[in-house]
């Protein structure tokens, strides 16, 4: 099996980029289950980093470590550090709501709120009291432009979000994540519920987004990781098996497990 890796991605060298998110000896348990084991990686800024691996490997949990969404699961507890721009977000003085304002998240299935297109985007800015009424229109427009959705919906902002197609809904969710003006965007298998054409659009969008944001992508789709990510982490049963430039992972895996997975001889 061979993977097409983008020209642009081939030129990427990890040393060229700055560290944005650093996991230091990060461990996570769900009750008795040890879900993430001794995670030590650095996610670089302004690129796409992919977490991949078989289901249940912990890639989504790792992603949710970055905006502490694991907190909402009562039985979850963790140890170790997660640094964003050098600051430990697991520390006691951290306001988790402020943290989540800096980290946008896009989920597996499009999950627009049952509100109008406009209200979906305006939801978070209004909540955090960051926008005056007149600025709000601007934020909505910019967010929708950022998610390459503006031209398709600008004449029907008051329509229900459910009137959009699945792919449009997912881009709306990306726009919603942009509305809080984050530095980091987390995407948890954002294309798994979409058709191929909608998937291509979202992937093109990811390439644009990394110009301004740090993008972290969880995917079970190897081709997708190869198409859009500069760096890839391969995970298996809660551990990072290999982490490096996507090109190296796909063309020269150091670990046998990685190679098995890449070549489809897994399990």
């Amino acid at each position: 099996m061979s993977y097409q890796i983008n020209e642009e991605l081939l030129r990427f060298r990890p040393k060229m980029a700055q560290d944005k998110v650093i996991f230091n000896d990060f461990n996570l348990w769900y009750g008795e289950k040890h879900a993430l084991i001794d995670i030590n990686i650095a996610v670089k800024s302004n690129i796409v980093t992919a977490f991949m691996g078989p289901s249940g490997c912990g890639k989504s949990s790792l992603l949710r470590g970055i905006n502490r969404m694991n907190d909402i699961i009562p039985v979850a507890r963790s140890t170790g550090e997660v640094l964003i721009d050098g600051k430990n977000i697991m520390g006691s003085g951290i306001n988790v709501y402020d943290l989540r304002k800096r980290v946008g998240m896009v989920f597996q299935r499009p999950n627009p709120f049952p509100m109008s297109i406009y209200d979906n985007i305006a939801y978070a800015p209004l909540l955090h009291d960051v926008a005056e009424e007149e600025e709000l229109d601007k934020i909505v427009e910019n967010s929708l432009r950022g998610a390459a959705l503006w031209d398709e919906v600008k004449d029907r902002l008051d329509d229900s979000a459910f009137s959009l197609s699945g792919g449009q809904q997912q881009r709306l969710c990306i726009a919603r994540a942009l509305s809080i003006n984050p530095d980091i965007i987390l995407m948890d298998e954002p294309c798994s519920a979409l058709d191929p054409i909608a998937t291509i659009k979202i992937e093109a969008l990811m390439r644009e987004l990394k110009e301004k944001y740090t993008v972290v992508l969880v995917t079970h789709n190897l081709q997708q990781a190869a198409r859009v990510s500069e760096m890839t982490a391969f995970m298996y049963i809660g551990e990072i098996i290999e982490f490096g430039a996507t090109r190296d992972i796909f063309e020269n895996p150091r670990e046998e497990l990685t190679e098995k997975y890449i070549t489809g001889r897994f399990g």
Binding site: R100, K101, M105, L127, H128
Partner: peptide, 21 residues
Amino acid sequence: QEYRAASLALGATKWQTIVNV
């Protein structure tokens, strides 16, 4: 559950999520 997750991920508190979503 997705509605709640989306709202919490935007930095809303639990109560804000309940009232608004």
